[in-house]
Amino acid sequence: MAKNKLITPFVKWVGGKRQLIDQIKPVLPKDIAKLKYFEPFIGGGAVFFHLQNKHSIINDFNADLVNAYNVVKNNLDDLIESLKKHENTSTYFYKIRELDRDKSFADLSAVEKASRLIYLNKTCFNGLYRVNNSGEFNSPFGNYKNPNIVNEPVLKAVSKFLAEQDITILNGDYAEAVKSADEKSFVYFDPPYHPVSESSNFTGYVQGGWQEADQIRLKEVCDDLTKRNVKFLLSNSSTQFIKDLYKDYTIDIIQANRAINSVADKRGAVDEVLIRNYE
């Protein structure tokens, strides 16, 4: 079946893989189209939307993001109507951003919450979804002239794909999301990256962040999948800690362009790793 080129991420997410697809494709299983696809850290879903596997389970710990996926799937018309009401002004942006500081935020409808997330994602600085330790969105206004707040062609294509194929959308722990995987499955992990330095640590798209213990737990989940003959591919930063942790697996080093660094001249191409348990 020909792939629909309009089925692409509808939000920009930290560490998104859209620019790395051509480097990821060569290491994917040759029979991936026949396998059930799992992506437990879905984020913007660049790999998921590129592959367009008919049978997939996607998951994320970020409840607002998962709500947006469900609304795009089930309430597209209402979402588009809501998105069209937003204004690209600083005053309006901060008014919408501040909504999660109030208890009434819980009373917003699923459509209103999804509309807010997409609006803030399209209009905030660098499209950077970031929350503070209280779980409040804190990226500043981007001041863009014509942000594409309502990308109807993409939203409609994604909605149709999510609704018509066998796609399960989960909001929970990644280990739970892969429990049903078997030898006819493929799992792609794109977790919060291990920091290459203390100043480069960025896990602000979910409250709490990730530590070394979290990376070790993920590796144990990968070990369990291997014992169950489940193929997995994992992306992470090319740190010695990660390379030592996965020394028993196949590790490929690729280069990625990353724009997240407080020091402008430290942005640019950085090494990342693709780790897998298959040939």
Rank of each mutant, 00 (worst) to 15 (best):
E98P: 00
I57Q: 12
E39W: 00
N53H: 09
V131K: 08
A163E: 14
E98G: 02
A256L: 10
K113A: 09
A175D: 15
I169T: 02
V150E: 04
L79V: 03
A68L: 10
N75G: 02
S238A: 15
S82P: 00
R217D: 10
I260C: 00
L28S: 08
R276N: 02
L170G: 00
G135D: 13
L162F: 00
S56Q: 04
I149K: 06
E176V: 10
Y144H: 09
N4P: 01
G208P: 05
K84S: 14
K247D: 05
A63E: 15
L65D: 08
Q23G: 05
S139C: 13
E112W: 06
P153A: 14
K103E: 14
S237A: 14
D107F: 13
Y119T: 02
A46K: 02
A110F: 11
N151R: 07
F105Q: 06
F189Y: 13
V47Y: 01
E279F: 03
R228I: 07
I24L: 14
I80W: 02
I242D: 09
N70L: 08
D223H: 08
H50V: 01
Y174F: 15
D265G: 05
V187F: 07
G16M: 07
S104T: 13
N4I: 07
G127Y: 10
T91C: 07
A163G: 15
K243G: 04
K179E: 13
T226A: 10
F38E: 11
K5P: 14
N151D: 15
E98F: 13
R217H: 07
E152S: 06
R101D: 12
S235D: 05
H86E: 12
F186N: 11
G15V: 04
Q240M: 09
D223R: 11
E212S: 15
A264S: 13
N148V: 14
L245R: 13
S237W: 01
V71W: 03
A269G: 01
L234D: 11
I275D: 05
V270N: 03
I118G: 00
G127I: 06
N257H: 14
Q52T: 11
N148K: 14
S139I: 11
N74F: 03
N148W: 07
G208A: 06
S197H: 03
S109H: 01
N277F: 12
S199K: 14
S237D: 04
I167T: 12
N67P: 09
V27K: 07
N277S: 04
D102R: 08
A256K: 07
I32P: 10
V221I: 09
L120P: 06
E164S: 15
V72Y: 00
